[in-house]
Design a binder for these strands. Structure first.
Lengths: 108, 108
DNA sequence: TGAATATGTAACCATTTGGTTGTACGTTTA
DNA sequence: TAAACGTACAACCAAATGGTTACATATTCA
């Protein structure tokens, strides 16, 4: 049952603006590939590749329905990013935590 | 005063594991390049390139001190990621928001 | 001064990324 | 059945990415 791990990690997946836009589209509603393609100025093949990368990161999944393939959002893997960010939040939310880093040197 | 915008956006900057590790190191304390290099199994030149990318994303900055260049963390740009994530949090924190997406189809 | 240290940078390279076109295949529908 | 639709996939390509080695420059210290 051990997943073969993520070939594409979620950080790489969300690094591309096109892929972030795909996620936004799918957050509104599930959509077939052809409909997703309409939102971009690139070929269907290019969009399909982005969908594959997002699928490998398990951020989306697609199901065949007739001749269409319908993709839907799975936001859960984004928790990894959230957890990573949480560590750094203290550095900008809690000024006290920044003292160690900035006080002595940046005294201009 | 208008910044020439970010050549490297923060999403690309944090996409690389090496760069995330650099951020973690600098969150502990500011460090000269040579000390950062010691933490990795790659050349100083390679590390320097990562430092440049992080600098362009304004996640770190370096100051010359004698013959050393000392880098320190600037976590502020990460707020952009946090804001982006906030939009998707409702999809995994608030089950109700997911109804529209999953209820009708995923009824197995 | 001269050696050692720390960094800057040019030139190069393999692989990945992000895109293309062309063709094939399954599904509707007239 | 034949045409139209939606998708899959192979082959190809330019540019970006992530790394290297080699050499130059600036600073410290014996």
């Amino acid at each position: 049952m051990a997943a073969p791990a993520e070939k594409h990690d979620v950080f790489k997946a969300i690094a591309d603006p096109t892929r972030r836009e795909v996620l936004r589209l799918l957050s509104e509603d599930e959509r077939p590939i052809s409909e997703i393609v309409n939102h971009f100025d690139m070929s269907r093949t290019a969009v399909t590749k982005h969908l594959q990368i997002l699928t490998e990161a398990e951020l989306i999944s697609g199901r065949k329905e007739g001749r269409e393939k319908i993709y839907q959002l799975h936001p859960e893997p984004l928790t990894e990013v959230k957890q990573w960010l949480a560590y750094y939040e203290k550095f900008w939310c809690n000024k006290l935590a920044m003292l160690k880093h900035y006080v002595e040197k940046d005294n201009s």
